[in-house]
Every structure is written in structure tokens, then in C-alpha cells.
Simulated assay, not measured.
Amino acid sequence: MDLVGGCRAFVSVSEAGSFTAGAAVARIPQPVASRRIAALERHFGERLFDRTTRRARLTPFGRDVLPTARRLVQLADTLEHDARRARLRPMSVAVPDTCGVRELAELAAEARTREVHLEFRVAPPGERAELVRTQEVRAALVAVPAGEGEWSVPLGLAGVVSPPARVVHLETLRAGRAGGARRHVWIQPEDDVPHV
């Protein structure tokens, strides 16, 4: 049983004074409002409205539960509002200071198409991992030594096809030498470590 939907119909009909007007206020068809209220009455085991007149008049039981039903509807509306706001809350990501504004803007635009809002925080290499650990950001771009990585790709490049050998040399990535598609290598100053 949809308790919130039933209470929403119940509150609307009680405030409007008729099933037709109450259904219009709740933006549902009148037969749906009637079914929801009937289901609510079956759930409670008591009638909410006296249906002997043309107007929807509350029964004593209906008057007693109406304030709580109103609070439930208001709480459901608040929950929906908070959930929408939480979905719009940006996901904070720590990035190197060498990341270009254009690339970050393109990444943010691509993320928005997937209903993810990114907020970037520029930080030096050592600080980014600490920001994730202290939960000041939700994610960070960090360099991981070869032996500590859980997964690896050649030179940090993600691709669909695995390279033919475990070791990839930069000269094989140059156009015309490898015989395949051109690959772009973006090495940051912080990548100048022995394992790269």
C-alpha cells in the first residue's frame, strides 16, 4: 500500500471538500484519488469520509488522523526536496595544478550529462591522497607506484585493446611506428619518477 500517496489524496480531498476538487489539487484523476482513499480506509480499518452527502465530510476518525497525515505528506515533500538537492551536490575531486581549465570544463560537462556535478580542488601530489583520506574530497588523481597499483594500463593510458607486450616504449606510440592508431601521452611533472 502506498501510504504517502493515500495520505496525499486524503489531505487534498479533505482540504478541497470534494473528491473531484481534491484530486485536481493532488494532480491525479478522481478515480485514482478514490481508490487511494479506499485503500487507506481498508488499511486503517475505519472510514475517513462520510459519503452520504455530495460533499466529502470527514468522519470523527478522519478528523483525528488528518493532522498526522498532513505531517506525513509534508515530510515526504521535504524528503523529495532534500534528495533532489543531494543529487545536485557536487562531487569534489582533487586534481593536479597542471590540469588545464578547458579539460576540466569538458570533464565537468560530460559528468553533468550523467547527472554528476563535479567540483575541482587543485592540490599538490602529497596533499591529494590526504584529502581523500580525511574525506575533504570524494576522489583524487594520485600517482601510484607500479608495485602498489591494483590495476594498471600502459603509461596510465586506458584503452580498449591490450598492448602486445607488457612493456611499452614511448617510441612505439609515435604515429607511423606502431602501425595502429595514434595514442596521446600526457605526462605531468609529478610523473617524473623512476617507474614511469
Rank of each mutant, 00 (worst) to 15 (best):
R102H: 15
A111I: 10
A9F: 00
V196T: 02
R89K: 10
R177W: 07
R166K: 12
A165L: 11
F120A: 09
A16I: 11
R182E: 00
P125G: 01
D50Q: 06
E15C: 07
R114E: 15
P29M: 12
A39I: 11
V132F: 08
L107I: 07
P154N: 04
F120L: 08
E15H: 03
H195F: 14
V11Y: 03
P31H: 11
A83P: 05
F10W: 03
P194T: 07
R70H: 10
P90F: 04
S34K: 10
A86W: 06
V193L: 09
R121N: 09
R71G: 04
V196M: 06
V167N: 13
A111L: 06
A26E: 10
L40A: 03
V32E: 11
R70E: 08
R183I: 03
A111T: 05
R121F: 12
F44D: 06
G179P: 15
V168K: 04
A140Y: 10
Q135D: 08
A69N: 02
P124H: 13
A175R: 15
R174P: 02
L173R: 07
S152K: 12
V101F: 08
A181W: 09
V25Q: 11
M91H: 09
C99N: 06
L141T: 03
L173H: 02
W151P: 00
D64K: 03
A123T: 05
D97C: 08
A139Y: 02
G62S: 00
L66N: 00
G100Q: 04
E41V: 05
T172H: 11
H184M: 05
V193H: 05
H43S: 04
I28H: 15
T98G: 09
V93I: 13
